[in-house]
């Protein structure tokens, strides 16, 4: 991920985007399932769309640290505490990988964070839901991470090389995230009646929001089609959602927990699980910023960032001072 936005180290200008053959060549590369790499010429809309998507993905990783991070101090056993600490730490790493992928497109992480902090870029609205009980940590792992992985696996083959490579690493590391959530719920479900009720309550609350993580239905998703044409998205929202339901519905039986959808049933004809209609009005409210914890998440994030200002400045000050000393010596 080098050199792409530092023109001083780039000896030759990238081909002009107004070259008439440019879009045709670019689309031929996409159609050939080729990979676009940082310094290639690319349509401006492709670049902008990628920056928006990768940044939102990165923001989601770091905001997503909060709902679970609040349980690191309260995890009910030392084993669970260690697992959760490692998981939330991984999410910081994943945010970092994704910001780095976005930076290959000529933006800076500080700018992207600034756009997050000023509300100009969004993060996944799933993280605006509260985590009142320990079972929420299980439900987030099983359902939210499960949905995220379903979304992310196809991105490992997306047309933009750095994004695909970051996603390979993330998917590999996240394989334990979903499992630990499943294990938490399994233990609770097979524990005391009170624990079982806690697990069921969490699954009841997280099921529909996790289905909404796949975005609006295909008929209603204008960005989706273009994203697929460019090889950034490989499957439609509804296809991925179906894949997730097919995966999790049988797992709920192993957990001994029910999913809060009376219409959920296996359709032997199609080989898929049918599910009830999703009420997206709630999702749109949450996206607009009316989610239960929107303000709190942003306040935590900006507060941590601002309290770090003097630290980041100090490190730069030290580096400048010592670079000068070495140059003189």
């Amino acid at each position: 991920m080098y050199g792409n936005h530092d023109t001083t180290s780039v000896p030759v200008e990238a081909p002009a985007a107004d070259d008439p053959t440019f879009d045709r060549d670019f689309m031929a590369l996409i159609d050939d399932d080729g990979r676009v790499e940082p310094r290639d010429a690319m349509p401006d809309a492709y670049r902008r769309g990628l920056v928006r998507q990768i940044a939102q993905h990165a923001h989601s990783e770091i905001i997503g640290m909060q709902p679970e991070g609040s349980w690191i101090g309260r995890a009910p056993s030392l084993k669970r505490k260690a697992i959760l600490m490692a998981k939330v730490q991984d999410e910081a790493g994943h945010g970092l990988y994704l910001y780095a992928a976005a930076e290959t497109l000529g933006v800076d992480r500080a700018d992207l964070l600034d756009r997050l902090h000023t509300g100009r870029q969004k993060y996944s609205s799933i993280f605006n839901y509260p985590t009142p009980t320990w079972a929420d940590i299980g439900a987030i792992g099983w359902l939210v991470d499960g949905a995220a992985i379903t979304n992310q696996v196809p991105i490992t083959k997306c047309s933009y090389g750095p994004y695909a490579r970051a996603m390979v690493r993330i998917c590999k590391e996240e394989s334990f995230h979903q499992r630990q959530g499943f294990e938490i719920l399994h233990t609770l479900s097979h524990g005391s009646p009170q624990q079982h009720a806690m697990a069921q309550d969490a699954v009841d609350r997280w099921w529909w929001p996790s289905l909404m993580m796949f975005g609006p239905p295909d008929d209603d998703s204008p960005n989706s089609a273009r994203s697929m044409r460019w090889g950034i998205k490989r499957f439609s929202n509804d296809e991925l959602r179906q894949r997730f339901v097919d995966m999790t519905a049988p797992q709920s039986h192993a957990l001994g927990l029910s999913l809060p959808d009376p219409e959920l049933a296996f359709d032997a004809l199609t080989g898929h699980w049918r599910y009830g209609e999703i009420d997206f009005t709630e999702l749109f409210e949450v996206i607009k910023g009316n989610g239960p914890l929107n303000a709190q998440r942003m306040a935590h994030r900006t507060d941590a960032h601002e309290r770090g200002d003097w630290v980041r400045e100090a490190a730069l000050g030290y580096a400048a001072k010592h670079a000068r000393t070495e140059a003189v010596a």
């Binding site: 770091i62 640290m65 909060q66 991070g69 690191i72 600490m85 939330v88 730490q89 910081a92 945010g95 970092l96 910001y99 935590h300 941590a304 309290r307 770090g308 200002d309 630290v311 980041r312």
Partner: peptide
């Protein structure tokens, strides 16, 4: 964790 001065 989630409150450090920088992601790293």
């Amino acid at each position: 964790i989630a409150s450090a001065p920088e992601l790293e």
